[in-house]
Amino acid sequence: MMYALNFVLWALAAMAIGLLFMGISRKLTARLQRRYGPPFWQSFIDVIKAFSRKSISHNFIMDLCALMGLAGLLAAAMYVPMGGILPFPSDSPLILILYFMPIGYLGMAVSVSASGNPLASIGIGRALTLMLGYEIPFAIVVMSFISNYGTTNILSIMQAQAGGIENWHIIKMPFGFLASLLALEAMTGKKPFDVMIAPAEIASGPMVELSGKFLGLAFLQYSVAVFVETGLLTALFLGGGATVWEFVLKQFIVYMVLTLFSEIYARYRVEQAVRFLWIYAGGLAVIQLALNMYMK
């Protein structure tokens, strides 16, 4: 019973943190463009408004898989240790998170494909192609962790970084960090890799047919994805955090760095994006793996 309450609280916290980050990043973008920008709680208002509107459903699959998309990412969020705390006792296995996250993306893919809009199908095709691009470098980075520690439990990886900034993997494994930062930029759909959204090109791609509550669910899903992805980078490379606040602050810094990168680059085409990720992110990841195996 206690665990059920923990799950709900954890899910709400993940959504709230993600939405807060999104709002602040919009404010940061505005300030970079010398605008005043929306208030930092704008994303919360957007989500509540989206849920207050009527929505048009095309079929049962669309409803079911929209929920499945959110559920998959929430399941992944349950294993992200916020400062050593987890909603229920587990070792927070990295492999499990990497399996749950695609369930979220695939749920959204099936949901918007069921709407039958050709632009949505194009967007999903691009998103899944891009997924091929960033999953492989990230998987190689995970392999370099396995070769170092023989485990994929995030808690033990966090413990290995305890005791100061010189033990963090950002210092010990800089190439792996850069590779995962590039992969994360693509995972969060930020600017050089925002080819699946591309509002001017394919009318916001996967979201083209989402109205009202579906759009609200998509926003929530993105917010949870932001929480999980920045949480992974924080736990793996930035030493996790002794407290929840420290962990969230590090996540926040990671997301703001991604936003800053997003503001200075133009959009890649999908094949350029995949090639860039495989050559540069993949190359850095392979260098890190080789170094780890050699130094061991």
């Binding site: 605008r35 920008g37 929306p38 208002i45 509002p199 001017a200 916001s204 979201m207 083209v208 047919e209």
Partner: peptide, 14 residues
């Protein structure tokens, strides 16, 4: 315009 929460959207559904 975005300081009032008004922004462009791509499709009629949204």
């Amino acid at each position: 315009m975005e300081r009032f929460g008004i922004g462009p959207m791509a499709t009629p559904r949204q």
